[in-house]
Design a protein around this nucleic acid. Structure first.
Lengths: 226, 226
DNA sequence: AGAGACACGTGAAGC
DNA sequence: TGCTTCACGTGTCTC
């Protein structure tokens, strides 16, 4: 899936993959001339290969979904996705607990976002809290650079935008999306101190296929516009 | 890691792994007799191999954590773990949203069409006893009715929309927002099976004050539009 | 130049 | 029996 490589948009991995796939297909297509156990063997291994390929694809797709679901994932590698998911899960759980206890008591507490929680409230987790080579920065120090990440899966499009906040920014972004004929499925956007973190899951509205490059470009333009 | 295989307890995979590791170590240990590029090459590939091994271990460890964190994981294969995590994440998120909206809106248990009036009262919300520990309410079983909730505070506007999903719904909503001259600050929208749950925080762009009634009306129209 | 990340094909094990 | 899942070593890319 090249979770991280997709950033540049070039997709070298993809082309390589397709090339390999095509090569394999061509090679295996016409080897039935020795109609014996060999052919059967070949068929079996071929099926095995494509099965494995499907499995990997499925897994990677889920990784993508996870990435889209968890805010403050800015690194794109699998380990980070899992780690952030874990952290977010704990945070959410703890927040639910807090809110529910607040429901009982009348007072409302100011809730702040993300804290590094050491304590666990789930039963049965006897796990030692080690692991992770010390990668625990909740909000990395991303520079002033804008980040536009576009991922296209099957019929779904994942949009990730990060940039400085400015007036009517969101409006411009959604105008761009509208122009791209994308139908928005889910949105998550927040503006913590002057920054925008935006994550959108969408699908193509109608059969008009659009290149990821175009999407990325349009978004870039939208967030650059004065 | 043999996530699923570990069930039996024997751990055949483990022994096999260790065996292989030992074999490799022994084999590579004494091949420095040809102290040339070959040895260097071997060292490199060996490092590569163990690096990859570590990476896999880390990943699998996180899978385990995830599995321990998410209740209602019954199958143990990786795909299921990811899938259940995704589902649980969505569920949790939605619950948080619900609880928070209850807190913010203050006694808005019975949602009415467009409640007006800037008030951030935080009275003891008398929620009807619904869920709680039992995370078994994936969706608030509201009828087919649309819910549009508009709250105006100082210079901020809180929009809450719930309705059936349809194509280009989001686009229409954001068009309405644009027309209302609202500048979006944060968004959270999700579409769990055919429904839309949308929450927007915005502020007035420019001095043109708009009545909450108009906002509500415009939103209603937007989500009604065919 | 070296470490880290990913996809790939392959052998093994469970159902 | 065949299908699925996994771990593994390897080639390749990026930083």
């Amino acid at each position: 899936m090249a979770l991280g490589r997709r950033r540049g948009c070039a997709g070298h991995r993809e082309s390589q993959k397709l090339l390999k796939k095509a090569l394999a297909g061509g090679a295996w297509a016409n080897n039935g001339d020795d109609g014996t156990a060999r052919a059967q063997e070949s068929t079996n291994t071929k099926n095995h290969v494509i099965s494995e390929r499907r499995r990997r694809e499925k897994l990677n797709e889920m990784f993508l979904i996870l990435k889209s679901l968890v805010p403050s994932i800015h690194k794109v590698d699998k380990a980070s996705i899992l780690a952030e998911t874990i952290a977010y899960l704990r945070e959410l759980e703890q927040k639910v607990e807090e809110l529910e206890s607040n429901k009982a008591a009348g007072t409302t507490v100011v809730r702040k976002r993300h804290e590094v929680g050491g304590k666990k409230v789930l039963a049965g987790s006897k796990r030692k809290a080690s692991e992770l080579g010390g990668e625990d920065t909740p909000l990395p120090k991303d520079g002033p650079s804008n980040i536009v990440n576009v991922t296209v899966t099957d019929k779904e499009v994942l949009l990730e935008v990060q940039c400085r906040w400015k007036e009517l920014l969101m409006t411009q972004v959604f105008d761009a999306i509208k122009s791209l004929r994308l139908d928005v499925l889910s949105v998550r956007a927040s503006t913590p101190d002057g920054l925008l973190a935006l994550k959108i899951r969408a699908q193509f509205a109608g059969p008009g296929a659009v290149e990821p490059g175009m999407i990325s470009e349009a978004l870039q333009k939208a967030i650059r516009r004065r």
